[in-house]
Nucleic acid binder design. Structure first.
Lengths: 332, 332
DNA sequence: TTGAAAGCGGTACCAG
DNA sequence: CTGGTACCGCTTTCAA
């Protein structure tokens, strides 16, 4: 089913059919009606690949995320997609599961699709890709990955500040022995996030931090917490890399008969909806995901519409959110 | 950056470049090397639209879901995508948010993309689409929507049986006054799911059911529960359409000082991971999402590879899962 | 083993 | 207001 068949049935040229399809130029309403009728009868659907090829322009943005299952990423995605739709763009997503190879193939796929813009909300990174990417001429927005690069807009959250707020609060409550529950994003035993926590704790003389990592899921949070408790002296506070893992931690603690926050404190990060619905509600750090989503969408849309605005970096300072999962360090 | 430029640089024809790109026929290794080098140097990425157009075949499946944010849908998606990848296919997803218009435009989009197969895991439905769809010749798999249709494979869960198991158990515990928390999938005040619950309860003479509905989110579950408790006599058991909303219900009850299950029982549906991690862990009904995902993927792959197997219907009988959110009805 | 050329299904410019 | 037609970038015979 193609333009030509529709044209034949409506007794017009393919050019005219194309015109009514795109409301372009002025088509006499009687012929337009004929064409519309033919389209309807033939249940014709224009081939988008042909359209993209001929038109040269794409109305589709690509979006790559580390873990769509985690509401943190999903919320950003949702906002971007909504904004994009309002502007007449589609969004096609790809999930990397924190796997660098998957990132590579996803980016290649997006380039192959000649997307109008690409948002990479990922923790992992392959240096070689950067060059490949800005060589492709596709407007790109990165979130959270390392240093800002040339020709690429970078949005990031000051993770360090967020963690410091958490540790300062816990310290003021008397906590000295911390546990950190992270996930396997950067391969090393000590990824950047864990490093940040240790640095933040090191601002005080009398603290110690032990870390454990697992998958970025509820179950992963539970397992990491179990590992943390299995080895050596138990911490009085467990700082989690995000809310999802913190909820996993809560479960493990509950099963061991430990009361939160009486026996042990727990903190999350991101302030996803679930952090208010779990029990006890999580003390966490708010990352403005909708705001980030709008920023991403705006940037992509702007880069697409006009001459690329200066590609700068935007840093967001996260806010501390006090709820019920934290309390004074228990007496020793 | 296109085939021709690569061809020119490698001093071969575009046909040859195409051959090495697809490992097709035999290309002398020396020329293949030249081509590969040119591709590398130019950072060439084949235009997938052109490829699809010329080749006629697509290696992409479309997948449409009602609410990717709900792990129920996400888990199915994840399984399908994984299976598809292993078979060399891509998956492009679309979220409808239970909106019929969104379903329509998503399906049109998929047809426009000429996907190799389409999976619709949705609760909403537009009758007119069916015709449009199987007229398009695209292999389709539906999950959960109404009656089986011609030319379309249908996978479904016996929701009625699941609900009956829940109600039978609650009844045996002495519950007679039920509340049902559903979501706005079918517009009517009484959607099919609510109807099913009322039917199941009606098998007993002395029961009553009141219903409330809101969005399919944690917050929605909370609000629906609030509505349920605000009007009239409180039920002794709240049956939720799914686990996500049940977790929302738990929160509302907790805030009102109601103990679950001592003061009131709550049940979920789907058995998503979160149902084990919330407190109290939810009594629910297990829907084998991975199994469904494999079924969907297998069907699509089969329909694509060989002559379409007879399009039948598969019905899954869900299993009751007893946990801690249900108990005897309180004395009156 | 490699090249030339005819499409694939649209878009858009140029005439009429 | 409408038709003719040259591409868009790649695949795929058909010949050489």
């Amino acid at each position: 089913m193609n333009l030509e068949q529709v044209a034949r049935r409506a007794k017009v040229s393919t050019a005219t059919v194309s015109r009514v399809l795109n409301n372009a130029s002025v088509v006499k309403s009687s012929t337009r009606a004929r064409v519309l009728k033919a389209i309807e009868e033939l249940k014709y659907h224009p081939n988008l690949h042909a359209r993209n090829l001929a038109g040269g322009k794409s109305r589709t943005f690509g979006m790559i995320l580390s873990n769509l299952e985690n509401p943190f990423f999903f919320d950003i995605y949702k906002t971007v997609e909504s904004d994009a739709h309002h502007a007449g763009y589609e969004v096609v997503v790809a999930n990397t599961d924190y796997r660098p190879e998957q990132l590579v193939s996803s980016i290649r796929l997006m380039i192959g699709r000649r997307v109008a813009g690409l948002a990479a909300i990922v923790s992992e990174m392959e240096p070689a890709l950067i060059e490949e990417l800005n060589h492709s001429g596709i407007p790109v927005v990165f979130y959270d990955v390392g240093a800002p690069r040339q020709n690429v807009t970078n949005i990031r959250v000051n993770y360090r500040r967020g963690i410091e707020k958490v540790l300062d609060y816990l310290y003021s409550l008397g906590h000295r022995k911390f546990g950190f529950v992270g996930h396997h994003s950067l391969l090393g035993p000590l990824n950047e996030r864990a490093r940040t926590v240790m640095d933040a704790a090191a601002r005080y003389r009398d603290t110690s931090v032990r870390t454990a990592a697992d998958a970025d899921t509820l179950e992963g949070g539970r397992l990491a917490t179990r590992a943390l408790l299995a080895s050596g002296e138990a911490p009085t506070a467990i700082v989690c890399v995000n809310d999802v893992m913190a909820v996993g931690a809560l479960r493990e603690l509950r099963e061991r008969g430990l009361r939160v926050p009486r026996d042990i404190s727990v903190t999350g990060f991101d302030n996803i909806k679930l952090s208010e619905f779990c029990h006890p509600a999580l003390t966490t750090v708010h990352i403005p995901r909708e705001h980030i989503g709008h920023l991403v969408a705006d940037t992509l849309l702007a880069k697409t519409d006009k001459a690329s605005t200066a590609e700068h970096e935007m840093v967001i300072d996260p806010e501390f959110v006090l709820r019920d999962s934290t309390g004074p360090a228990p007496e020793r």
